[in-house]
């Protein structure tokens, strides 16, 4: 068989594989790109560049492995390169301690009258700002897990870090977001529930410690 025919056959298989394994994740990559780039036109550019790079690097992808995570990794790296931003290293605490710290944030919210902060007020803009202000490493896990519904394992694969690192960054990021949103509520004069409602709701215990 002539070499050109063989090459054509190989390319055909490669292209078919790319279509079936990579292009099927276009909606997920789009959603991820939209969460990185809030502007749709920029997100479109990012998605296109991601798939062009993926096609170019398709030879390095191992068929049958986590293609979505591989694409997310390319997308994230491309995003940072486009922004000329370095992915900063951050220190992180023990995830268990971070999980316990969440209880302290909740206590603070309750004492300030903001126990129902996330159901009573539209915080969309404040949430976007708070996410944008997170250090990149924390923002990455929030966007993958909380906005794009990835598991800890998938996020770890996409970020190239151990699951323990994902957990600790995620829990810290959530605490930072909650603290920022509670501060926003206070600074914006959003009225605490305790100022408008006498006593708790029917569902809420009245003698919780």
């Amino acid at each position: 068989m002539p070499a050109t025919v063989m090459r054509d056959g190989t390319k055909q298989v490669r292209d078919r594989q790319f279509r079936s394994e990579a292009l099927r994740w276009l909606p997920e990559v789009t959603r991820y790109a939209m969460s990185l780039e809030r502007d749709e036109a920029n997100a479109d550019d990012l998605v296109q560049e991601t798939f062009l790079k993926a096609y170019e690097a398709w030879g390095t992808y191992t068929p049958g492995t986590e293609c979505r995570g591989w694409l997310f990794t390319i997308c994230r790296h491309t995003f940072y390169r486009r922004r000329r931003r370095e992915e900063r290293q951050v220190s992180y605490d023990d995830p268990d301690l971070e999980a316990l710290a969440a209880a302290a944030v909740h206590t603070s919210a309750r004492q300030g009258g903001y126990a129902d902060l996330f159901t009573r007020f539209d915080l969309s803009d404040a949430i976007d700002r708070a996410i944008a202000n997170l250090p990149d490493a924390f923002r990455d896990v929030v966007l993958l897990i909380d906005v794009n519904d990835q598991s800890y394992e998938a996020a770890a694969a996409a970020l190239g870090v151990p699951i323990g690192t994902v957990r600790s960054r995620l829990f810290r990021a959530r605490r930072l977001l909650q603290e920022a949103l509670i501060a926003h509520a206070r600074d914006s004069g959003l009225v605490p529930a305790s100022a408008t409602v006498q006593g708790g709701s029917a569902d809420e215990p009245t003698n919780a410690p």
Partner: peptide
């Protein structure tokens, strides 16, 4: 409720 508020920030492409 916090997680639901964050998840709601996922945008759909037009």
């Amino acid at each position: 409720s916090f997680l639901a508020a964050i998840a709601a920030r996922g945008q759909q492409h037009s």
